[in-house]
Amino acid sequence: MLVPNHKSFYQDLRPGFSAGQSAERAGIFEQAVKREREAQQNKDGSKIAENFCGWVLEIKELHVTIEGKPILKGVNLTVRKGEIHAIMGPNGAGKSTLAKVLAGDPAYEVVSGEVLFLGQNILELDPEQRAHLGLFLGFQYPVELPGISNLQFLQTAYNAKRKARSEPVLSDEEFQKLLDERMELVEVRSEFKLRGVNEGFSGGEKKRNEILQMAVLAPALAILDETDSGLDIDAMRIVARGVSCLMNEENALLLITHYQRLLDYIRPHFVHVIIDGKVVQSGGAELALELENKGYDWLHPAEVNV
């Protein structure tokens, strides 16, 4: 397998930035990641085996159908704290299905398999209960909620989570303060507070609003389903910066994407390829580049032995 030299990898793939800037950023980020990985590995060796605190998400042999039609055919995936995973694959491979099933979309039927989130089986839980545990889905196509202001929506969601966790709810002023801070972080203008949720938003504004929700709800695991589609370079940069700021060693990120582009900005630790409802290949960040160059044709489910 082709493993590109990291420096040239960044230089080649960031035409919008000067090479020096990119490399510098990448350097800082990679160092942080390395530290996290080392910390993780140390933990792995000691405690984690008997207590699940290191695993954010474990998907075991997940089979899912919609209206009787199989979509996921035995997905396995493990995500640990502090990790960024990217899931790639051609259209119709089951990427978005996986995201929605994890969030609890009732349209899909889980036939068999197990999904553990922070050690707890969540397949029997309602979407809101999964959210209370700290799971977040950034939708590929966020719906519009006319007449419900962003502020009202976010405050209701935030306090619902606090209540479910037996934490005190925030007063209006406290929440406003938190919201202002997070809006600044993800560069969403304050006028969006009083607008109806996603109502009349452009594609890019909707995606940024998803990131704002993620910033407010501070999930343990964020699944971003094609957040990059429909974003121009500036919007992508803002989204990536917001996401990077929100990542720490206690949470994890699952990026579902069609293109390598977003991964130039948010560098994953692992890349997985889903084809025809199965993870057919996993690797490091370099796998994304390989896919960009070679497409998906060289990966066929039949050829893969797990």
Binding site: D105, P127, E128, A131, F136, F139, L145, P146, A157, A160
Partner: peptide, 30 residues
């Protein structure tokens, strides 16, 4: 009430009844 809207609200931690109330409120707000 739209299933996609309900799922969206619930995925943010809002209960079924809370989501329905919000949708009604949004509908009446005009």
């Amino acid at each position: 009430p739209d299933a996609a809207q309900l799922f969206y609200l619930k995925s943010r931690g809002i209960s079924q009844s809370g989501a329905q109330e919000l949708l009604i409120e949004g509908f009446c707000q005009e």
